[in-house]
C-alpha cells in the first residue's frame, strides 16, 4: 500500500476510534447511568437491574447506526485532505479500507459480547441466541455445528455493516456536492416523497388486482435465500450475502462516482 494511502487510512481510523468510544460512552450514559440515577431519584431502585441493562446493550445495532452516520461525513475531511495534497481517489479508498477493517473488528467484539455476556446473562444457549436475531432465518442451513453457524452469522453482519457504511458514503458524497440550500430541500423532500411512496404501496397492496406483484415477491424471496418449501432457519444464507454484496458494489460505485466530483465550495 502506498505511504499516502496508509497515512490517510491511519488518520481516518484514529478519527473514527475517537468518535466510536465517544458514541459508546454516550450510549452508556444515556441508557445505563441516567436510568440508574433516575431510579435512585424516584426511589424505584428495586425495578432497576444494572446487570440486565448492561447486558442488553445492542453493540452491533449501535455500530450499524454509527457506521452509517460517520461514513456519510465527507466534506470536512475532503477539505483537509485536498489541502494536504491527497487525491479524492486515495481518500475514497482509505475510507473503504477503514470501513472494512473497523466493521470486522466491531463485529468480532459485538459477537464476543453477544455470546459471552448477553446470552449467558439471559440464560440462553448460543443457538437460542441466534434464534432471536435476523439470522434466525438461516441458522440451521449450515448444519448443527454452532461455531459454523456463528461464523455465518458474523459474516452476514459484517457484510451488512459494510453495506450500511457504503450507503452512508454514497449519501454523504452526494450531499457534499449540494449547496446548503439544495441540501435543506433534499432533507425535507426525501421523507415527504418516502411517505407518498408508502401510501402508494399500501394502496396497491389493498387492491392487488391492479398490479401483479407476485413476480416481485418471488424475486425478493429468492434474494432472501428462500427456496422451495424451506422452513425459516433453513434459508440459504449465501443468497442474502450475495444480494448485500451486489448492493455494496452498487453503493460503492455511487460513492466513488460522486466522491470524484468533490470540489471546493464558495
Amino acid at each position: 500500500m502506498s505511504t499516502k494511502r496508509w497515512a490517510v487510512t491511519r488518520y481516518l481510523f484514529m478519527e473514527q476510534l475517537q468518535l466510536l468510544w465517544r458514541t459508546y460512552a454516550f450510549i452508556l450514559v444515556a441508557f445505563v447511568i441516567l436510568p440508574l440515577l433516575f431510579a435512585i431519584l424516584t426511589g424505584n431502585l428495586s425495578h432497576y437491574s444494572f446487570g440486565s441493562t448492561l447486558t442488553d446493550l445492542g453493540i452491533g445495532a449501535v455500530f450499524g447506526f454509527f457506521i452509517l452516520v460517520t461514513m456519510s461525513l465527507t466534506y470536512d475531511n475532503f477539505k483537509l485532505f485536498i489541502q494536504n495534497g491527497i487525491s479524492r481517489k486515495t481518500y475514497c479508498q482509505a475510507k473503504v479500507i477503514n470501513l472494512i477493517g473497523l466493521s470486522f473488528g466491531m463485529e468480532i467484539i459485538s459477537a464476543l459480547y453477544n455470546f459471552l455476556v448477553t446470552a449467558p446473562a439471559r440464560g440462553h444457549s448460543g443457538q437460542a441466541f441466534l434464534d432471536t436475531t435476523v439470522y434466525s432465518l438461516y441458522d440451521h442451513f449450515l448444519g448443527t455445528n454452532l461455531f459454523v453457524n456463528i461464523l455465518g452469522y458474523m459474516a452476514f453482519n459484517w457484510i451488512f455493516f459494510i453495506g450500511l457504511g457504503l450507503t452512508g458514503m454514497a449519501i454523504g458524497s452526494i450531499f457534499a456536492l449540494l449547496t446548503k440550500f439544495a441540501r435543506n430541500i433534499a432533507i425535507i423532500a426525501i421523507p415527504v416523497l418516502g411517505f407518498f411512496l408508502l401510501v402508494f404501496l399500501s394502496n396497491t397492496s389493498t387492491s392487488p388486482s391492479d398490479y401483479n406483484l407476485d413476480g416481485l415477491v418471488n424475486f425478493l424471496k429468492f434474494l432472501m435465500g428462500y427456496h422451495a418449501n424451506a422452513q425459516p432457519g433453513y434459508f440459504n444464507p449465501t443468497m442474502p450475502m450475495l444480494t448485500m454484496m451486489v448492493g455494496c458494489v452498487i453503493m460503492g460505485a455511487i460513492a466513488y462516482y460522486f466522491n470524484q466530483k468533490l470540489k471546493l465550495k464558495k
Partner: peptide
C-alpha cells in the same frame, strides 16, 4: 488531477480556511 504524487509536491495556502 486526482494524483497524490503531483499534488503532494505543491501546497496552496488559501484565503478560504480549509482546516476544521
Amino acid at each position: 488531477h486526482d494524483n497524490d504524487q503531483t499534488l503532494g509536491q505543491l501546497y496552496l495556502m488559501s484565503e478560504v480556511n480549509m482546516y476544521n
